[in-house]
Design a protein around this nucleic acid. Structure first.
Lengths: 369, 369
DNA sequence: TTTTTTGATGATAACGTTTCAATTAAGTTG
DNA sequence: CAACTTAATTGAAACGTTATCATCAAAAAA
């Protein structure tokens, strides 16, 4: 192209052409190309970081600045089949999930990607909606907690070439990557600690037995009991919803047993909160009257006057691992590998909520509830 | 169109046509139209809920199901200039912000929209990146906390016709909707409570005075002091970063004064945590030795053995109000209204961390720190 | 019936990018 | 300096929708 004087008049009039009552047409790559007197393709090359002759580069930069041009990511995504968006499903933005999302976001940002999040509140219909939504928006990859009802949708996504990564909760079937946590071993160690310091009447506040975490954590409890040759008492296995009220109600039941437990392993944060609320209400002191071990490490457990001994899931490691898998799956060569299944270890954080059982905690001290 | 026998052979071969090594071309609206023997436009009408002849509707539904068709939201957005995505900026997914995002998500979902979130960690560069990102993805509306460095970007967005809503932190200038909280009045009431129950040596742990919340909360403190005719002592105004360590350090300074305060108003959650840590370390009991009032209501404050009296921001109301403004702005008629500026009231939640000053807390009881 | 009114359908042009083959400019080498 | 190699540029064809408008079918009114 000749650095044409004859085109100058035309290009000047192009700038900010249409001002139709408030909503202005955003300038496009075509406007930039005209303004800079280069081909559209050249502007595209510039925008995508490919080499461009110095003179053109300057002209393009000036044009972009003058026009206030902003690339339309949708159009780009449509053509290139890459949205640079990662779908991320969480049940809720709890104190466990929020940090994972936050870390995922910042890690993804570093590779030029963004995270589109969706809370499904454990509602099956919402889970399906979420998959539909992510599929419609053509996310490059979907990260989600496992759900039975999602299996069909996951298969469709995989068939369409979208990698899916399961975390937190496992579900059998689809050939996807999994980033899980060794719930069983961690639970066994947590309960083992209670047994080690002399407790024998150890109860468990188990969550739903229908999901992976719930059954694994209960299995860990049983494993520790067996390993320490302590009899498993059926009444000490309290099964409830994963909620605060679930923890409250079952803790109440445990307290009213003939021989109430001297220590309780609560299988998640919410149940622990419920249990603590009940104990406070009934004047039971932690750890003097009863020892508590929880799962999940939230600020509350660290900052309470009496810190709560707990199993800390490696939140940072989880986010890091997921991010790594995404990077690998989205690279040319990593796309066709067999699925990884990574299980991360947890830490037990000892705080003040666990202590040797009191000598006075003998049989028969039934709670008057 | 004749219900053609002669087309049947053709359409059957269309299904799952191209299987190129793992990544299959997703079926499009065109495939559906062919399969159902209708025009593309008719399928589009069906997808968008417009009336379609019964026979065609059935044919389309069957075709969609057989082909596993999923609408491409990007292509739709590009043409219709509506992405149905709301951009949402948060500094961090803290215990204050996470619930807002969560509630925003579920409210938006009800109107068929999704929330794209971005954590900027109060890093100016990230704030700019976020705006760039949201602009590129053509979000229908941007919700963000106020930032000086974002003003220029906000203006560009507005000029392009994208509504912007400020929340949490205000910033002067751009004509945008604002959803704020009456920090000043809330703070005045919180401090007023301390004064009411007899404290006179009341200190404030103020955050950054350069931002809206920081200056307003300090102003509220001063207002209460004036209203109660209590002299404002400069040493009692402790100014620090909004962080845990900031609260820790300044609390230390306050304790080491000739006449340490008998009550402290901490201007946010993190500073309170820092202050509490220091008090525990130095053996000062709350509320026996010192009363504490905080800002923000997080689970910790509710679940500690000694609950913390605090100012609760109306998180649900904030989300609701933002959602309402979005709906209005995105409707035909609401688009051109003058900006709203809504200020919501906070609640004071009385717990156990505030109590009348101890008779023994006389001048001269200097802390040996 | 015939004419009018209403409403769904069909073909095609956008929307704003990327990609690709063809072309031209710029370096390198003999 | 010619002949070759390499690299940047160009123009046009996608990508998968929605929007428009001219048709065409069906129901309502005459």
């Amino acid at each position: 192209m000749s650095a044409g004087d004859e085109t100058t008049i035309e290009t000047q009039s192009v700038i900010r052409a249409a001002e139709e009552g408030g909503r202005r047409r955003a300038s496009t790559i075509i406007d930039v190309a005209n303004e800079a007197n280069v081909a559209i393709g050249t502007v595209s090359r510039y925008l995508n970081g490919l080499t461009v002759r110095a003179a053109n580069r300057d002209a393009i930069e000036t044009a972009i600045h003058r026009l206030g041009y902003r690339r339309n990511a949708l159009a780009a995504a449509m053509k290139s089949d890459l949205t640079n968006m990662i779908g991320f499903m969480v049940p809720t933005l709890s104190e466990f999930h929020a940090p994972i999302l936050e870390q995922m976001s910042s890690r993804m940002r570093k590779s030029g990607r963004a995270v589109l999040s969706y809370c499904h509140n454990d509602d099956p219909a919402s889970v399906l909606d979420a998959i539909e939504f992510f599929a419609a928006h053509r996310v490059d990859c979907l990260v989600m907690d496992g759900h039975e009802e999602a299996i069909e949708g996951i298969r469709e996504l995989l068939a369409g070439g979208t990698p899916v990564i399961l975390y937190d909760n496992d579900v059998a079937g689809p050939p996807v990557d999994r980033v899980l946590v060794d719930n069983r071993t961690a639970s066994a160690r947590a309960v083992g600690h209670l047994l080690d310091i002399g407790h024998t009447r150890v109860a468990v506040l188990a969550g739903s037995l229908h999901d992976y975490a719930g059954s694994e954590r209960l299995a860990g409890y049983k494993q520790a009991m067996v390993e320490h040759s302590v009899e498993i008492v059926p009444e000490y296995i309290a099964q409830a919803a994963w909620t605060e009220s679930g923890g409250y109600a079952e803790m109440l039941r445990l307290l009213s047993l003939e021989e109430p437990p001297t220590a309780v392993f609560c299988c998640n944060y919410n149940m622990t909160v419920g249990a603590l609320a009940l104990l406070k209400e009934y004047g039971r002191r932690v750890p003097e009257d009863i020892s508590i071990v929880s799962f999940d490490d939230v600020p509350l457990f660290r900052l309470r006057e009496v810190g709560i001994t707990t199993v800390a899931q490696p939140v940072g490691k989880i986010a890091e691992t997921i991010a790594g898998i995404i990077a690998s799956r989205l690279s040319e060569d990593g796309a066709h590998h067999a699925p990884h299944s990574i299980t991360l270890a947890c830490d037990i954080i000892l705080r003040e909520s666990t202590r040797r059982p009191h000598a006075a905690s003998t049989p028969g001290s039934r709670a008057d509830v």
